[in-house]
Nucleic acid binder design. Structure first.
Length: 692
DNA sequence: TTTTGAAGTCTCTCC
DNA sequence: GACTTCAAAA
């Protein structure tokens, strides 16, 4: 066994196409049982790092070997990236035939099916997908129209309305129950919620808009009805495989049952200990009830961990043993040796940042590439200080997670131009873009939209609208721009990039006028253009960007494309399914991880614990948990407050770790632990090694 | 009616 | 610290 094989045990020798016997040979007994399982329902309970992906990939490969046609296999994953990765690995096993396997997220697959079959079910072609904030804006229109929220005391805001709506759709929990559970202060508004939702639904239909939840809902409805269309769709696939099953919700479970009406060839893989998406309606009931929904299901647990060293596993096993699990797993490994995870107390945030940077540079010097290291945190903003320091030191990194880019006002502005071209009835986008124009405010914008509605949204409606004198210039410029874009081809190489460039000739000046921090915003628009490069039609671009938002700044062609050795900064959520040689988990502070707002009820705290578990189990050889002892609290005025270590790192967990204090000189010493482990001043050790 | 300035409101995770 | 909402001035 080479060094490489020891460090990267998950990267097996997948090289050339081989026969079925060979395909199973590289797997352990449990993995092979799952991969070679014949037809019928199969539940794989796969603990962290147990070769779940490898098993799925081999199962796909073996199905293909058996002669199942690739386009009759559907592989549902959590991100586009993991679908691509799995199919690429399958290709190394069985060759290019695997390229025809259908793979993607539930939402992307729903989108594909609805574009193809939606019209037959009464969903007009050419619908536009709304993202979360679009849906919120539309909800706001309904709210305003019904005269709610004016004067009435504390009527819920649009985000809350949308959250309740989405939760109801995804979980089928009655609105009243959601309110009393999550928003007891709004229980009295139950009837109003219902009216807003009815209006919201009608608005979507009028405008031919579809939100994320609709994608799933329509898919479920399509396969649950009786009739030839449902038969056709549920007959599209002979085998369906689902990754990360613990993070699917009730609606998705309905979809799967609908898709498996004529067969039960459904393989689901999941780990109840890693369920971290309940805010999206995910429920581990799907895993627990799987044998009930699919009688005769085989259950295969994968318990041998190939990823982490024994000391890391000792730590994470202890952490998760505090949780209630239904499918108990005892993860073990043959990877003995290695150091205990570090628990690092830093004086404050800058000290924490210095520790992370110093230590990762040290590891880098020892030969660990940057791309084999990651820094994980609970929420996107927690890496701000670190990002500044990394930039200052010239260390390349990419940041995963968060949809900030698409949510940025200026990006949404530019997209609004494209969206009204694509869907003239999209009045949310019309309103947004009209409000941008000098001389046009709320009243004028609404007037223009009303006028267009009168003309049934015909393409020349905006040109025929008579603006007030003040708005003449803006109106003229806009008409000219839209006419020009409409006159262009509907499809051409680089079309979208060209259109964005044309929009920017008008928009960039507006941006400069309206926003501060102009330079980075203009850079964002450059990146938007770069992303659009691969699309030859607006419709494809707008759908793709809503369903598969760029995951990292790196995806946007940020920085140098030549840099292939980059550090990863990621939210714990976005790190799911990935692994690195060295992992830093920062801000392990009560109130940050777990987050303060999740402390309300036990279930949320348990989910935070699982999230911490997910973060820590990403590590192969080195794991560092850090927390700053003092935090400068801007809300409370000007005082430092003393942090409490995350409650998940209780005494038993700490016993599996080694404690380290950074900058002890200035710090309040950490809560005295009996038999304190050796204290090391890392800064002293590293001083002068990497510059100040 | 539009624009501008100031107070006020949250703070997350993602398809 | 960033964004929304509200109130007053142009």
């Amino acid at each position: 066994m080479t060094d490489d094989a020891r460090v990267y045990p998950q990267r097996p020798r997948e090289v050339e196409p081989r026969g079925p016997a060979d395909l199973a040979a590289g797997l352990n007994e449990a993995q092979a049982r799952a991969a070679t399982h014949p037809d019928g329902p199969l539940l794989v309970i796969a603990g962290a790092g147990t070769g779940k992906t490898r098993t799925l990939v081999h199962r796909v490969a073996l199905l293909l070997e058996r002669g199942i046609r690739p386009e009759r296999i559907l592989l549902l994953t959590f991100t586009r990236r993991s679908a691509q990765e799995m199919l690429a690995r399958a290709e190394r096993l069985v060759g290019s035939v695997s390229r025809s396997v259908h793979g993607g997220t539930f939402h992307a697959t729903a989108h594909r099916l609805l574009r193809r079959y939606g019209e037959a079910a009464g969903l007009p072609a050419g619908f536009t997908i709304m993202d979360q904030s679009d849906a919120g804006d539309l909800m706001q229109l309904s709210r305003a129209k019904l005269g709610l929220g004016e004067k009435k005391k504390r009527f819920p805001k649009k985000e809350t309305l949308h959250h309740v709506y989405s939760r109801h759709v995804n979980t089928e929990i009655p609105v009243a129950a959601i309110l009393s559970e999550e928003y007891p202060q709004f229980v009295e508004f139950e009837e109003e919620f219902g009216r807003v939702f009815a209006d919201y639904t009608a608005r979507k239909a009028e405008r031919n808009l579809v939100d994320y939840d609709d994608l799933l809902l329509f898919w479920a409805m399509l396969v649950e009805t009786d009739g030839p269309l449902a038969q056709r769709i549920s007959g599209l696939y002979d085998h369906i495989l689902v990754d990360e099953y613990q993070d699917t919700n009730h609606l998705q479970s309905r979809i799967l049952r609908g898709m498996c009406r004529t067969h039960a060839n459904l393989t689901v893989v999941g780990d109840d200990a890693q369920s971290i998406y309940s805010f999206r309606g995910a429920t581990i009931r799907n895993i627990l009830d799987f044998p009930h929904h699919f009688p005769g299901a085989a259950i295969v647990p994968l318990e041998e961990n190939y990823r982490s060293t024994q000391p890391i596993l000792d730590c994470t096993n202890t952490l998760i043993s505090r949780a209630e699990e239904r499918y108990t797993k005892n993860l073990y490994t043959h990877r003995t040796g290695g150091e205990k995870p570090w628990l690092v107390t830093a004086h404050d945030e800058p000290a924490q940042t210095r520790f992370v940077v110093d230590r990762l540079l040290e590891l880098h010097e020892e030969g660990v590439p940057l791309r084999e290291m990651a820094v994980l945190f609970r929420a996107g903003y927690m890496s701000a200080d670190l990002e500044i320091e990394l930039t200052a030191r010239g260390i390349p990194f990419e940041k995963w997670g968060g949809l900030k880019f698409l949510e940025a006002a200026h990006v949404k502005d530019v997209l609004a131009f494209l969206r009204v071209l694509e869907n003239p009835r999209d009045d949310v986008s019309w309103y947004r873009l009209l409000m941008l124009m000098p001389g046009i405010g709320d009243v004028t914008a609404r007037g223009a939209i009303d006028a267009m509605a009168q003309l049934a949204w015909s393409s020349d409606a905006f040109g025929r609208y008579q603006p007030p004198p003040r708005a003449r210039a803006a109106h003229g410029a806009l008409v000219e721009l839209l006419d020009q874009l409409r006159a262009g081809p509907a499809e051409a190489d680089g079309l979208v990039t060209h259109e964005i460039a044309r929009v920017r000739r008008l928009y960039d000046d507006i941006l400069r006028e309206r926003y501060d921090r102009v330079e980075p915003r203009l850079a964002d628009l450059d990146q938007l253009q770069t992303i659009s490069g691969g699309y030859s039609s607006r419709a494809a671009f707008l759908s793709a960007i809503a369903l598969e938002p760029p995951q990292a700044t790196q995806d946007l062609g940020f920085g140098s494309g030549s840099e292939d050795d980059t550090l990863v900064l990621s939210t714990a959520h976005s790190a799911k399914g990935r692994e690195w040689d060295a992992v830093f988990v920062i801000w392990a502070v009560d109130g940050y991880f777990p987050m303060a707002r999740a402390l309300g009820d036990d279930e949320q705290i348990e989910e935070e614990r699982r999230l911490m578990y997910v973060a820590m189990t990403r590590a192969r050889n080195h794991l560092f948990i850090t927390y700053p002892l003092n935090v400068y609290d801007t809300r409370r005025g000007s005082d430092y407050s003393i942090d409490q270590l995350s409650r998940f790192l209780d005494r038993g967990v700490r016993e599996t770790m080694q404690r380290v204090v950074v900058d002890a000189g200035e710090a309040t010493p950490p809560a005295a632990e009996p038999a304190a482990p050796p204290v090391v001043d890392l800064r002293a050790m590293l001083r002068g090694r990497f510059g100040a």
